[in-house]
Nucleic acid binder design. Structure first.
Lengths: 340, 340
DNA sequence: TTGTATGCGTTATCAC
DNA sequence: GTGATAACGCATACAA
């Protein structure tokens, strides 16, 4: 194996000192234009590549950031990650992606192993509300910036980038009401997570604001899986007074619900309207395209990365907390659009 | 910031030497059972965590591996990555995921920045056939193991894990023939990539083996996008003698084709049968579920990781090349199943 | 502006 | 079995 060239090698060749070479390479102030050029040119010639590990060890920065998501095979999270990358790569950072697969122990486990890998920060979307705050406190003690996106937890001093879930849900529900729906069910999810709580609250408020009856038996907590959507829809349809619309906090459960509704011979949107959440690509591709709420995930990723960069550059002197809330957009499609 | 405890701290506390502590922690041979226990216990007490950067600098290993995929928001790649993680995490490795988004320059760029991050190996699925071999040679010169999965390139000394695309395509086409289809079109893709070439060849062989007419005008090269599938289907349907089946090398183009076929008022599978490739989840979820070829992506990921581990542990003395070929499975669904 | 010296946290090679 | 010391490659406070 050819040994990699170090700053020592190029120092020797130029009858200089490693220190000088280091300075020249880092565009330090105190260096003559001549030596700077000379060093940089020979560095190029000798195929010099900085050993990031050594720099990391010395500076305490690894230029790696950890991103923790429940999973990455949903377009939403994949897109957020893409946004993060777009912002961070140009700054020389790398992204280590961890998935929790919604498993409780993996959340803490991932944080720990990221810390162990000396990441400069952690950007995460909470998957389990039960994860103890202890681990987050230990992050703050170690001065490793933590930024939440989408699924946040309210922790003082921790910044977050989210969308206005309340508003998104409110608009979606209002849209259903405007289509003439009177009994709107809501497929919810673990409401100890803020996003699901807020979607529920937005739904509720829209119902109340428009003088409809609020029937809590129409609100069902489930999981973001197609199969769960089917099951839940089945339960709803077998009610004495079944709903005439479903607002789902997830596109996947919305899809399951649609399957079940069709299987029972009901027509969408004539008999029942359905609205999902996240604007996953399949909502557009279905023959019966699905109305959904777009969360501008790429933008969310970019903002999250920007907040991280601010925190990391601010020198850790200023303890700040930034809450960025993006505006969702309702995309109306066939599954909820009754012909007038 | 509380300083992290180092082996020096725990050495001082125990009136030992850092060297001894290191040995105890690493379960070295030459150490008494007593001190080993003592050290390990105090390490626990003092919340000692190994500084991976220092270990990496010293050992030349970063315990990071790079994974390069065209994109990760397809279930196939996401699942391969999951398989890789399942195999590598327990061994203490981290995974840095890079996406090329099918952009030519990103492929080389990603490799370079992964090298810069001192990864111990690169597992990748080629997205562009034009990427010059030069970059791969530089990998081998630096003794950084490279393993291809799915989309490989034939480079001597480089191992790969793929599926038998020829066979998968052959079975898919044979299935269509058994359904009575006579004019089977093939939506291909960049055939300078082996997977697409092999799928084409499998398709062709099945046609020939069953005495059907091979009409090259029914083979169209396109991109793995829904919209492209639509466009291509439109072209096919406007032919003088349109096809009575489509075998697509991608589920996404298959989906687009289905949309177009329906839009033109034709019936699937009665008028035209459609088969895709990859077994993306949506193929199962559509009202008209889509026949597809499963590639056991998780298994593929696990195997790829295992090959990497072998290469990295083998000491780089034995130069070996391993070609693992998994067997695909045809999943027959509504889009190609004519009632007998 | 450049050189000297030192430390980042580990591990490996000597000795004892 | 344990200690002393050097080395991994780089960056910086200090001296010149």
């Amino acid at each position: 194996m050819k040994k990699k060239t170090t700053i020592y090698d190029i120092a020797k060749k130029l009858n200089l000192t490693a220190a000088t070479v280091s300075r020249a390479l880092n565009n330090n102030e105190k260096i003559s234009e001549n030596t700077r050029k000379l060093v940089q040119e020979t560095a190029l010639e000798m195929n010099y590549e900085q050993n990031t590990l050594a720099r990391a060890l010395k500076s305490g920065k690894s230029y790696n950031v950890g991103v923790i998501v429940p999973r990455m095979d949903s377009n939403f999270f994949a897109s957020v990650i893409r946004g993060i990358e777009e912002e961070l790569y140009p700054k020389g950072y790398h992204v280590i992606i961890c998935q929790t697969h919604d498993q409780e122990n993996l959340e803490t486990g991932n944080i720990n192993s990221l810390l162990n890998a000396q990441v400069d920060g952690i950007l995460m979307s909470i998957s389990n509300s039960k994860t103890k705050n202890q681990i987050f406190n230990s992050l703050s003690r170690k001065r490793v910036p933590l930024i939440f996106f989408d699924r946040k937890k309210d922790i003082s001093g921790v910044s977050s980038v989210t969308i206005d879930d309340f508003n998104g849900a409110y608009e979606a529900t209002k849209h259903l009401i405007e289509q003439g729906c009177k009994r709107i069910a809501h497929l919810s999810n673990d409401r100890s997570l803020e996003i699901f709580k807020n979607r529920y609250l937005g739904y509720k408020q829209a119902i109340l604001d428009h003088g409809l009856e609020l029937d809590e038996s129409l609100v069902i907590e489930t999981h973001s899986k197609v199969e769960e959507g089917r099951k839940t829809a089945k339960a709803l349809l077998s009610m004495e007074r079944p709903p005439d619309a479903i607002f789902s906090s997830s596109d996947f459960t919305a899809l399951g619900a649609i399957q079940e509704i069709k299987a029972q011979g009901l027509k969408i949107p004539e008999d029942i309207c359905v609205v999902g959440f996240s604007n996953e690509p399949f909502t557009r591709f279905m023959e019966l395209s699905i109305t959904s709420v777009d969360q501008s995930p790429i933008e969310m990723g970019r903002m999250t990365a920007q907040v991280f960069l601010e925190e990391v550059n601010n020198g850790k002197n200023v303890k700040m907390e930034k809450q960025i809330v993006l505006t969702p957009e309702l995309i109306v499609r066939k599954s909820s659009l009754k012909k007038q």
